[in-house]
């Protein structure tokens, strides 16, 4: 158990913006932590509370949703709905005694490759500082 703690993060990325930005980051040869597992979604409005909670239940250390800039959602308001669901999950985590900062919502555009990398780095740092999820600790 002496190895360096490497957290697992799940990122739900909208295919119109964040997922495309991840592609761009790749082609720009920008590096970002491999801790982040990306799940492409057709719109962040598709991400439900249960998806975020399931990730936490299954021992993800951090979860975030990355959607289009507010006002630019391809489905008008999917990203706004996602933000409210993230807020709900933050509240639930607080009730459960888990740091709400483990869940976050971000907005970016497909042109923001560097921003995508920055978010991945920042979130990984944040989770590293928080340490392993209490769910994981309970497992052991």
């Amino acid at each position: 158990m002496s190895e360096v703690y490497e957290p697992t993060l799940i990122a739900f990325c909208c295919k119109y913006c964040a997922y495309a930005a991840a592609d761009l980051a790749g082609s720009m040869r920008l590096s970002y932590p491999s801790n982040v597992k990306i799940t492409q979604v057709p719109c962040t409005g598709r991400v439900d509370i249960i998806h975020l909670l399931k990730a936490i239940e299954n021992s993800a250390d951090g979860v975030y949703v990355a959607g289009c800039m507010e006002g630019d959602c391809h489905f008008v308001s999917g990203n706004l709905k996602a933000r409210k669901r993230v807020e709900y999950v933050k509240k639930t985590l607080t009730e459960l005694g888990i740091e709400p900062e483990r869940v976050e919502m971000f907005n970016l555009s497909s042109a923001m490759g560097p921003r995508f990398a920055e978010i991945a780095i920042d979130m990984t740092d944040r989770i590293k500082k928080l340490g392993p999820s209490p769910v994981k600790r309970g497992d052991t």
């Binding site: 439900d48 509370i49 909670l53 239940e57 459960l96 888990i98």
Partner: peptide, 21 residues
């Protein structure tokens, strides 16, 4: 259905943390 899933998952998370799944 949605709320049943959310509650079930939330309870499981809490009990996992408590070490009493």
């Amino acid at each position: 259905l949605k709320e049943v899933q959310i509650l079930a998952t939330s309870l499981k998370i809490a009990r996992k943390i408590g070490g009493f799944p």
